[in-house]
């Protein structure tokens, strides 16, 4: 897979505050890459830097293997923070201004307005739009010249449940066309539902990254019990892939290191002559995992 965006040791300092601290990550072509982190963790600053509006203090990045230029910008459609349009211009005229800048075909304007469900509102001024309509207009603007990559910053922020569902559905439909999507969000649920890959940020630092399945779901808890717990505990001490374990009444709660599953544990227990009476895999709630990830 080709690398669409490569970030290498990128940093941004505001005085003594490190908004982004030596961040490195790579976005592969065709992935839906989530930047996940609480408010103020450096998601927007990171996107601002790779989109040429914030000057990095250190480090570098490249789009499609090149530096940022007019040519690379035209392959990327992006929304940063709030939808930014001229309030006194109609939806159509706003998109005309953007089509000029992007060198996009003006015939796409009507098509994109239809795609985001604003076809009948093309002559309404931007200031008359609801927040949901503004977000959808921003999506239409980002997709105006059919870019290979979409960068979306909190695209469902402030929307009602129906609006959120619509935008997510739209993102998945766009991704199904083979486009790469980079999505910043503080909503775990959103990243889990939409993204294929995720990078978790905390105070500007990369906490962890990888496929969503590995980061958010693999660390399941196992609950084991046996007739006699003593040999189980002894064995758990020695097994190298046990991340942690703790005895609770008549059972043991444990977590495994990445890449191991309950099958491995069961096999090794049996090989050592320990027969488990219970082996339950329990997924931790996503929120709990997320809080653990950003706390540790």
């Amino acid at each position: 897979m080709a690398i669409v965006l490569s970030i290498d040791n990128l940093s941004k300092k505001y005085g003594s505050l490190k908004a982004v601290d030596s961040l490195s990550l790579q976005v592969e072509e065709g992935s839906i890459y989530g930047l996940l982190g609480p408010n103020g963790s450096g998601k927007t600053t990171t996107l601002g830097m790779v989109l040429d509006v914030i000057q990095p203090t250190g480090g570098s990045f490249s789009w499609f293997g090149d530096g940022i230029s007019k040519a690379t910008k035209q392959r990327v459609g992006a929304i940063l923070e709030t939808p930014n349009f001229y309030p006194y211009l109609t939806a159509k005229r706003n998109l005309q201004v953007i089509a000029d800048t992007k060198g996009a075909d003006h015939q796409n304007i009507a098509k994109m307005l239809d795609l985001v469900g604003l076809g009948t509102r093309s002559n309404t001024t931007f200031k008359g739009f609801s927040l949901g309509m503004k977000q959808r207009l921003a999506l239409a603007a980002a997709m105006l010249n059919d870019p290979e990559v979409l960068v979306l910053d909190e695209p469902t922020n402030g929307l009602d449940p129906q609006g959120i569902a619509e935008v997510r559905d739209l993102i998945l439909r766009i991704a199904a066309q083979g486009k790469t999507i980079i999505l910043a969000s503080h909503l775990l649920d959103e990243v889990e539902k939409v993204c294929t890959h995720v990078a978790v940020l905390r105070t500007g630092k990369l906490v962890t990254d990888g496929p969503v399945g590995n980061i958010l779901s693999a660390k399941e808890q196992l609950i084991v019990s046996a007739e006699y717990l003593a040999p189980v505990l002894q064995l758990l001490e020695r097994l190298p892939y046990i991340a942690q374990f703790a005895q609770e009444k008549d059972y043991v709660i444990l977590t495994l290191q990445e890449g191991y599953s309950s099958t491995d544990l069961n096999r090794d227990m049996f090989a050592q002559g320990v027969v488990l009476s219970q082996l339950v895999a329990r997924r931790k709630s996503l929120e709990k995992q997320f809080l653990e990830i950003i706390k540790s």
Partner: peptide, 14 residues
């Protein structure tokens, strides 16, 4: 104030 200058640089203007 409309933040459109930022959007235009994102969209392709130097």
């Amino acid at each position: 104030s409309f933040r459109t200058i930022r959007q235009q640089v994102i969209d392709g203007l130097s």
